[in-house]
């Protein structure tokens, strides 16, 4: 048991654990968690605990990674409620010339960029009319809504902000306020239970 290679192999375990600790991207952390599982199985096997090594390899590497992949994928999402008539423009997003002359697709791309910066995934949820969109925001089905402002609202302020983005999550409001660079939208924050605007 007093061989020098044992110490070298055991030193790999805190090394990979440290790498896992300093990783900020959750998807990259999943991969590093798998590496930590493989190294831990090696260390346990070298130290003579064959059953612990087998459990670590099966549970720690396969089950934990699969479960946390599902958890990360379903929780790190920003649901954006939009009206259905705005949707066809969004699906043409791959064509760049369409994106240039359609400000709404541009706005969606901006929102997606600022969400990706915080490792969030943007999911578009279409609604039929503004009433159901408003109700979905109040009932916490979506986090953010983005609608075109009506003309009489537009006349009282300057013309440069044709879209209205509303969020009910305080943290999302702070993120979007600092990072959303698009000049075409106005950002407001609303508290969900009472529904009054600030």
């Amino acid at each position: 048991m007093n061989d020098s290679y044992v110490y070298i192999i055991i030193a790999l375990l805190p090394l990979s654990a440290l790498m896992l600790m300093v990783q900020v991207n959750p998807y990259h952390a999943l991969v590093i968690r798998g590496i930590l599982g493989a190294v831990a199985a090696l260390v346990y096997a070298v130290l003579g605990a064959a059953d612990v090594a087998l459990t670590e390899a099966l549970v720690g590497t396969m089950l934990a990674i699969t479960l946390s992949a599902v958890a990360v994928r379903s929780s790190l999402v920003m649901r954006l409620g939009i009206l259905e008539d705005g949707l066809p423009n969004v699906e043409d997003e791959s064509k760049t010339e369409r994106e240039q002359d359609c400000p709404f697709a541009h706005l969606i791309a901006d929102l997606r960029a600022s969400a990706n910066k915080h490792h969030l995934r943007l999911e578009l949820v279409p609604y039929a009319d503004p009433q159901s969109l408003q109700r979905a925001l109040i009932e916490k089905e979506v986090h953010v809504t983005c609608v075109q402002r009506s003309p009489h609202q537009e006349s009282e302020s300057e013309d440069v902000q044709p879209y209205q983005t509303t969020t009910r999550v305080r943290r999302l409001y702070e993120i979007l306020q600092t990072e959303l660079s698009s000049p075409t939208t106005r950002l407001t924050y609303m508290t969900a239970p009472s529904g009054e605007k600030h």
Binding site: L30, V31, G34, A38, A57, L58, T61, M62, I65, T66, A69
Partner: peptide, 9 residues
């Protein structure tokens, strides 16, 4: 068995 988990991931 470990490779199967890798493919899943």
């Amino acid at each position: 068995v470990g490779n199967a988990g890798l493919m899943l991931l």
